[in-house]
């Protein structure tokens, strides 16, 4: 793939281009799926790692672009493998050797540190997506800074009930996060970038 094509894909990821995202998903998922299933992961881990790696690239493109020393595919695989390697290490699921990552996928230390620091975010978003639709909608509006009155108008409940529902949804989210073994390993408050 040419550098121009790779740049177009990165731009497509940044812009949320549906066609480009879908093609990227299809092209790269088989390899990552095979890798994670072969290395003590399950299907949920495959989706989590793949999506978190894409979010990582999206956020990097938003802040300061990406310098590709090798191909985009190699870069992406490196990010996926570092995420997975970090999670295995935290869960102590298997002995980690450098064989887990190919030499050409070896990622700069600064990127590895960024991946580690973002684990808390990935954890939060993973559990948020498990909430029911109403909870997701309500909390999204809350985190956007909307008042209870504005939220209750959108959701269609009374203000009092909305406040109660908000408490229930947020408490549920916090508890799901706290009960995740990965959260215990991260030991919040997390380190900042």
């Amino acid at each position: 793939m040419s550098t121009t094509e790779e740049r177009q894909i990165l731009e497509g990821i940044l812009n949320g281009d549906e066609k480009i995202l879908k093609a990227f998903y299809r092209d790269n998922m088989p390899y990552i799926k095979k890798y994670i299933l072969k290395n003590a992961g399950n299907h949920e881990d495959v989706e989590d790692v793949f999506q978190d790696a894409m979010v990582f690239i999206y956020q990097k493109m938003k802040t300061d672009s990406i310098h590709l020393e090798s191909s985009l595919r190699t870069y992406f695989y490196g990010v996926c493998k570092n995420i997975w390697r970090n999670r295995l290490r935290r869960n102590k699921k298997m002995v980690i050797t450098d064989d887990l990552i190919d030499e050409k996928e070896h990622t700069e230390n600064s990127i590895v540190d960024e991946i580690i620091n973002k684990e808390q975010e990935y954890l939060y978003r993973k559990h948020f997506s498990k909430l029911g639709t109403t909870c997701q909608q309500l909390l999204t509006l809350l985190f956007k800074g909307k008042s209870m009155r504005e939220i209750s108008k959108v959701i269609g409940y009374s203000e009092g009930y909305t406040r109660k529902k908000k408490f229930g949804c947020k408490q549920h989210l916090i508890e799901m996060i706290e009960q995740d073994p990965a959260y215990q390993e991260l030991k919040l408050p997390a380190k900042k970038n």
Binding site: G16, K22, M54, Y124, K170
Partner: peptide, 30 residues
């Protein structure tokens, strides 16, 4: 308070939230 602060900081990033949601839908569609 710190836990709430962290949550609000992560989820205030609407663009990333929307992007993640888009990925979930793409995965489901595929």
């Amino acid at each position: 308070v710190e836990k709430h602060r962290e949550l609000h900081a992560v989820f205030a990033d609407e663009d990333t939230m929307a992007f993640k949601q888009q990925l979930i839908e793409i995965s489901r569609s595929i």
